[in-house]
Design a protein around this nucleic acid. Structure first.
Length: 198
DNA sequence: CAAGTGATTAGC
DNA sequence: CTAATCACTTGC
């Protein structure tokens, strides 16, 4: 399968990109170069300047958010709650600080490696949340600033998903964002068991 | 259901 | 400098 084009990430309609990422395959080779991959089943769009839930709201530009201002296709990793990393794809042109949070994936290749990294955990809990999938892929702060067409991590075409199989709704864990907390900018694959609970 | 954990940020 | 907050997970 082939890596998604730069063009895919450079579009300015962040919500559409979030929807289009459902069904794509994330690949992160392990320490031996073996493919570990998973299909994206849940995403959330964060619309930079205008979105109170986004780290870059109001054009906020700090060490952490700097990478959101880079070119679409860049990898944005941040750390929350003192223990977990979150994987995001920066989208849009330079100085357009939008990003897509990858919230849940379904393991496809290298499941044994994923099970090992996750410890004694039921299969359904392997990658069904943004912090979980980072552990499953071995993603940490050093991935921040990488590119989704690079060697450590990339996204490939995998499966076409029709609109009938996609649901959308409000985003999770951003109740502080007032009117933006209600925006239906979360997308998931209908009925998939790896979609995060809550 | 609530604790845990530490980077990040805003506010002095 | 200090204190509050946080795009979550797990084990009780």
């Amino acid at each position: 399968m082939k890596k998604l084009s730069t063009q895919f990430y450079l579009r300015e309609d962040t919500v559409t990109i979030a929807r289009d990422m459902i069904g794509k395959l994330i690949v992160v080779p392990d320490e031996n170069g073996k493919r570990v991959s998973a299909m994206i089943v849940e995403t959330e769009a964060y619309l930079g300047e205008i979105d109170k839930a986004a780290h870059s709201f109001g054009g906020r530009r700090t060490n952490r958010t700097e990478i959101m201002y880079a070119k679409g296709g860049s990898v944005y990793i941040f750390f929350v709650y003192g223990m977990y990393y979150q994987l995001n794809a920066v989208v849009g042109p330079v100085d357009h600080p939008h990003a897509i949070l990858i919230r849940a994936v379904e393991p496809i290749e290298g499941i044994e490696t994923i099970r090992e990294r996750r410890g004694k955990m039921s299969d359904k809990n392997l990658t069904s949340g943004p912090g979980k999938l980072c552990i499953a892929f071995g993603i940490d702060k050093t991935f921040n600033g990488e590119n989704f067409r690079g060697k450590r991590i990339w996204i490939e075409d995998h499966k076409e998903i029709s609109d009938a199989d996609i649901e959308s709704g409000r985003r999770i864990g951003i109740d502080y964002a007032e009117e933006y907390a209600e925006k239906p900018w979360r997308f998931w694959l209908k009925g998939n068991v790896y979609v995060s609970k809550r």
